[in-house]
Computed example of a mutant assay.
Amino acid sequence: MQKGGAGTLSQKSLADIQKEVDAYIGQFKEGYFSPLSMLARMSEEVGELAREVNHHYGEKPKKSDEAENSIEMELGDILFIVVCFANSLGIDLADAHDRVMNKFNTRDANRWTRKNVEP
């Protein structure tokens, strides 16, 4: 189990997260953005994550007047927009995850060297 923000343990399922985001968006007349707008927004957020990763692990230090953002918050922003995107298209992310894991477990079953495998 992973720690949530501020040292708390999060036990939300993907379904819980999707419902929480839907309730948040549902209180506004504008609702979800169009798929193209969400894709653009996702691209923006991934760029912000790339910038933070570059500051923390790359050769590009922050400028002295740049705001302090965290990789955790940028990943949270990406998760939010992914959930918005899925909700707007009626996609159950837990089901999508299960389907993707099945694909990796079958297609890539022998692709990588496994740890602690006895002959």
Rank of each mutant, 00 (worst) to 15 (best):
N102Q: 14
I17F: 14
D77C: 05
K63C: 08
K62R: 09
N110R: 13
T113N: 03
G90H: 00
L39S: 08
N69V: 06
H55L: 02
A23Y: 01
E52M: 03
G26K: 02
S10R: 04
E52F: 01
C84W: 03
V117H: 07
H56E: 15
D22V: 01
R41D: 13
G76H: 11
K62S: 01
M1R: 14
K19F: 03
G5L: 14
L79K: 12
K60V: 13
N69C: 02
L75Y: 02
P61G: 05
Q27E: 13
L39H: 13
S10N: 10
F80E: 08
E66T: 09
T106N: 11
F104D: 06
G47H: 05
L75A: 08
A40N: 06
L9K: 04
S88A: 11
L89R: 12
G4N: 07
A40E: 12
I71M: 03
G47N: 07
H56A: 14
S34F: 07
N116R: 09
I25C: 01
L93V: 02
D95T: 10
G26P: 00
G58N: 03
L49N: 05
V21S: 02
H97K: 15
T106W: 03
S43D: 13
N105T: 08
V83Y: 01
E72H: 08
L9G: 06
G31W: 03
N54E: 11
F85A: 04
A86V: 02
G76W: 10
F28Q: 12
E66N: 09
K29M: 06
I78A: 09
D22P: 00
S37K: 07
M101I: 10
M42W: 06
D16S: 06
A94E: 11
T8K: 11
S70R: 06
K3D: 15
D65P: 01
L89Y: 00
N110E: 12
K3S: 15
E48N: 13
T106Y: 10
S70N: 04
N102P: 04
T8N: 11
L79Y: 01
M73I: 05
S34C: 00
K63E: 11
Y32A: 08
R111N: 07
I71G: 05
I25W: 02
A96V: 04
M73D: 15
T8G: 10
G31C: 07
L75H: 03
E20K: 13
C84L: 07
V46L: 15
